[in-house]
């Protein structure tokens, strides 16, 4: 492991700037009733700036190849996720979401979760998203609906989301930034995370003040492991995941199966009952729905 070249994510000004840029970008990009291209450009730029701030605050990974792959897939996931929520058209949103899923699948693969990466693509992009699109085709009126062109409380919502993101980032950064902000100067000569985490725990315990919970729990399990050990999850990955799933979590798997069945039956029951209720209901909404569905 190489020494950490960058300041930790918790460095105040950078993080604050990232949060502010996120708020402004989302506020500008979210549908607001005015379709002004220049505002959207500005918002996109601010968003990219925020993204850059996050990248800058991020940490170097072990190797260039891994770093580049991670950077690309995560950028795909995050940018298309942002595009999902700011797209006026729900169909575009769904397609952006599919792209975001691809990015997420890539992140999962980088994280060594081969099965989950593939499953995400298959289940989400292949099944769930297609279902969404079907519904959209059934229900979406022609053109942009008025409610797709406006947002509900965009500023407050963006602020809430960005502040949450800021707090989360702060906590994530403090996973290792604990000693840096604490009384002990950083003595990270050793590249081993085990020593780093040991130095994380000791001073906070010695100081007797409440240590950051996230940092603590994250560091302790890592203490006894060696840096050179290979990923225990990598070998015979799918087989061992299956063994784990059907061994230790068999009851939960059965429960999940029952849940699927119940959801299936419930969905069918609600559809049939709703249609029976609507059969006697000759309000104009029914005809409006039918008209928009056939269009």
């Amino acid at each position: 492991m190489t020494p950490l070249p960058f300041a930790p994510l918790s460095s105040g000004p950078l993080l604050a700037g990232a949060v502010l840029a996120t708020v402004a970008s989302l506020w500008l990009l979210l549908p607001n009733g005015r379709d002004n291209a220049s505002i959207r450009w500005l918002g996109s730029l601010l968003g990219l700036a925020a993204l850059a701030a996050f990248i800058a605050a991020g940490r170097r990974l072990g190797g260039l190849g891994e770093e580049a792959v991670f950077l690309i897939v995560s950028l795909v996931a995050v940018i298309s996720a942002a595009a999902t929520i700011v797209s006026r058209s729900p169909v575009y949103a769904a397609i952006w979401f599919a792209l975001s899923l691809a990015g997420v699948a890539g992140v999962l693969l980088v994280l060594g979760a081969q099965f989950l990466g593939v499953a995400t693509i298959v289940v989400y992009a292949g099944a769930i998203l297609v279902m969404f699109l079907f519904v959209l085709m059934l229900a979406q009126p022609a053109g942009l609906a008025p409610y797709d062109r406006v947002s509900n409380e965009p500023f407050l919502s963006a602020l809430a989301g960005a502040v949450l993101l800021g707090v989360l980032s702060l906590s994530i950064g403090r996973l290792s930034a604990g000693p840096a902000t604490c009384c002990q100067p950083p003595s990270r000569t050793a590249g081993s995370p085990s020593t780093a985490s040991q130095s994380t725990t000791t001073p906070s315990a010695a100081a007797g003040e409440p240590a950051p919970a996230a940092g603590d729990t994250a560091s302790v399990p890592a203490a006894g492991m060696t840096a050179t050990a290979v990923d225990p999850l990598a070998e015979n990955h799918v087989a061992r995941l299956g063994g784990e799933l059907f061994g230790r979590h068999l009851v939960a798997v059965e429960a999940a199966g029952v849940l699927l069945l119940v959801a299936l039956i419930g969905a069918i029951a609600v559809v049939s009952r709703g249609e029976a209720a609507l059969a006697g209901d000759t309000t104009p909404t029914r005809s409006a729905a039918g008209r928009s569905a056939t269009r």
Partner: peptide, 21 residues
């Protein structure tokens, strides 16, 4: 939902403030 999120956020920020280093 926004009101609920605001409430959660207030708690989260408060916790983060208390747990600062």
């Amino acid at each position: 939902a926004l009101a609920g999120v605001m409430g959660v956020l207030a708690i989260v920020v408060l916790l983060a403030w208390q747990l600062r280093g």
